[in-house]
């Protein structure tokens, strides 16, 4: 009678006939599915507040116990962007959506590169929450991130590096899952993807209408536990308003109107 069907682990809502799974068992199943962390049941995902994007993400937001990757994409003309301002802005926005606590920011020393500048970051979160760590070697950086993920009281761990290491990525992902703390990898340049990350975003700056309203082109290039979407890589044009401090999705119609003249110029 009890033949295990492929449907055996479907969620209880769809299986109307069978008994409702007790919460403990459901949690166990979820853990098997690796979608959530059992440790922080109330904080499985942090919504971005953008309905168009949240709709696609698992649990309607950024999973807190997972590894996310944000890379700076090439500029609209296809040239490698000289800096990752938009990706950094998007990362800061994501950090601002997470709960309170310390933000561990791990980076690698690079003499010529520009450092984080707190007065601007204050738009998204309180920079006093930042704990900045400089690690010379890749292993050390990943070690510091892992230590951070295991520490209570840490809201998120950010690693700013070009290094990609499948083993390290896997370890980070497991540590994030175990403790329910999100790990974010910020790539100043497109890097080999970490296969274990829950989401991978590519963010590039886009021409804005007004300088107080920066526009970012955000592509969701990987969405591991989320909903499938019509497009292969869903992409949005986001607008950050400096004065109201709100991020909004620019509707397709508006974005077409600003995009058209640009394309013409490129052709000519």
């Amino acid at each position: 009678m009890s033949v295990i069907s492929p449907n055996a682990f479907a969620s209880p809502a769809t299986d109307s006939q069978g008994p409702v799974l007790p919460p403990l068992l459901r949690e166990q199943v979820r853990r098997l599915e690796r979608a959530h962390s059992a440790e922080r049941p109330g904080r499985a995902a942090a919504p971005l507040g953008l309905a168009e994007i949240d709709r696609l993400l698992p649990d309607g937001g950024l999973l807190t116990g997972a590894l996310h990757e944000i890379e700076a994409g090439p500029s609209p003309s296809g040239r490698v962007a000289p800096h990752d301002g938009a990706a950094l802005g998007f990362t800061a926005f994501l950090l601002g959506r997470l709960g309170p606590g310390t933000l561990l920011w791990c980076r690698q020393p690079s003499g010529a590169d520009a450092a984080l500048y707190a007065p601007a970051l204050a738009a998204w979160f309180d920079p006093a929450r930042l704990l900045m760590v400089t690690a010379r070697r890749d292993e050390d950086l990943f070690w510091a991130m892992e230590e951070g993920l295991r520490t209570p009281g840490i809201a998120a761990v950010v690693g700013e590096t070009r290094a990609a290491d499948p083993t390290a990525g896997r370890r980070l992902s497991l540590a994030a899952e175990k403790n329910g703390v999100p790990a974010l990898l910020l790539r100043p340049q497109p890097a080999p993807p970490q296969s274990v990350c829950a989401t991978r975003w590519r963010v590039a700056s886009a021409p804005s209408l007004d300088l107080t309203q920066s526009r970012w082109r955000v592509e969701l290039r990987r969405n591991r536990f989320g909903m499938p979407s019509a497009e292969e890589t869903p992409s949005w044009l986001l607008e950050w308003n400096d004065e109201t401090r709100r991020l909004a999705v620019v509707s397709q119609a508006q974005h077409g109107s600003t995009g058209a003249p640009r394309r013409q110029r490129l052709v000519g």
Partner: peptide
């Protein structure tokens, strides 16, 4: 002090995220 940064940021004009 909590909020010192945002107070400081609100007093100044637009600032870059990386300096």
């Amino acid at each position: 002090v909590e909020g010192a940064w945002s107070r400081l940021a609100s007093m100044k004009g637009a600032r870059p995220t990386r300096l």
